[in-house]
Deep mutational scan, measured.
Amino acid sequence: EVTIKANLIFANGSTQTAEFKGTFEKATSEAYAYADTLKKDNGEYTVDVADKGYTLNIKFAG
């Protein structure tokens, strides 16, 4: 089991951190699915992958 950390960075400057656990593939998939649910209210997003994929910096356009 691994932990994927998602740093969520919103257009208004606020930030939030979420963690997803499971296999690497499952946790990564859940992180992207979570970002997709936030897209409606926060706009499109870009992802900067860090720490060999264990950290995702997800920035929303607003």
Rank of each mutant, 00 (worst) to 15 (best):
T46D: 07
Y34A: 04
T15E: 07
T3S: 11
L56D: 00
V2E: 14
K5I: 14
I58F: 15
V2C: 04
A6N: 01
T37R: 12
Y45T: 02
L56R: 01
N57P: 00
G13F: 08
T15K: 12
G22P: 01
A18N: 14
E44G: 09
T17F: 12
S14D: 08
S29W: 10
K26N: 15
G13K: 13
A18Q: 14
K21V: 14
L56K: 01
G53W: 03
D51C: 05
A18S: 14
A6W: 02
D41A: 15
S14I: 13
E44P: 15
N42P: 01
T23D: 08
D51I: 02
K5H: 13
A18T: 09
F10P: 01
E30F: 11
G13I: 04
K40C: 05
L56G: 00
A31N: 01
T37I: 14
A31I: 14
K52Y: 15
Q16F: 13
I58G: 00
L8I: 15
A6Q: 03
L8P: 00
A35H: 00
Y45D: 00
L8G: 01
V49K: 08
E44H: 14
S29C: 05
K26Q: 14
G62P: 12
D41W: 15
D41L: 14
G62C: 07
V47H: 03
N57E: 07
D36A: 10
T23C: 04
I9A: 09
I4Q: 00
K26S: 15
T46H: 09
F60D: 00
A27N: 01
I9R: 10
N12W: 07
A11L: 10
F20T: 01
D41I: 10
K40S: 05
F60C: 00
E1T: 07
T28Q: 10
G43K: 02
T55H: 04
A27M: 02
Y34P: 00
E1V: 07
E25F: 07
D41S: 15
F24W: 15
T15P: 06
V49A: 11
Y34W: 09
L56T: 01
A61L: 12
T46Q: 06
D36S: 07
Y32K: 07
G13M: 11
A27G: 04
Y32L: 15
S14K: 13
F24R: 06
A33E: 13
I4G: 00
N42E: 11
D48W: 12
L8V: 10
E19Q: 11
T28N: 07
F60P: 00
Y45V: 02
D48L: 12
T23W: 06
E1C: 05
A11D: 10
L56V: 05
F20L: 02
K26Y: 13
G22R: 01
K39E: 06
N42R: 13
N12P: 04
Y54D: 03
L56S: 00
F60E: 00
A11H: 15
I58M: 10
T37W: 11
T28P: 01
G43W: 03
A35W: 02
T46Y: 12
E30K: 07
N7W: 12
A27K: 01
D48M: 12
I9V: 14
A50L: 14
F24C: 04
A11K: 12
K40I: 11
K26D: 15
T28E: 05
E19K: 11
E30C: 06
Y34C: 04
F10N: 02
Y45A: 02
Y34I: 04
F24H: 09
S29M: 14
K39N: 03
E30P: 00
Y45I: 03
N57M: 11
Y45S: 01
T46F: 15
G13R: 10
Q16N: 09
E25P: 06
Y32Q: 04
T17W: 14
G13A: 05
I58P: 00
N57Q: 09
A31V: 13
K52H: 12
K21M: 13
T3W: 08
G53I: 02
D41R: 13
N12H: 11
A35V: 15
Q16E: 07
T37F: 08
K52N: 13
A31L: 08
Y54L: 13
V2K: 05
Y34L: 11
A27R: 00
D51N: 10
A33R: 13
F20C: 02
E25M: 08
D36M: 07
V47C: 04
A61H: 15
T23K: 05
I58A: 01
K21Q: 11
N12L: 06
E19Y: 14
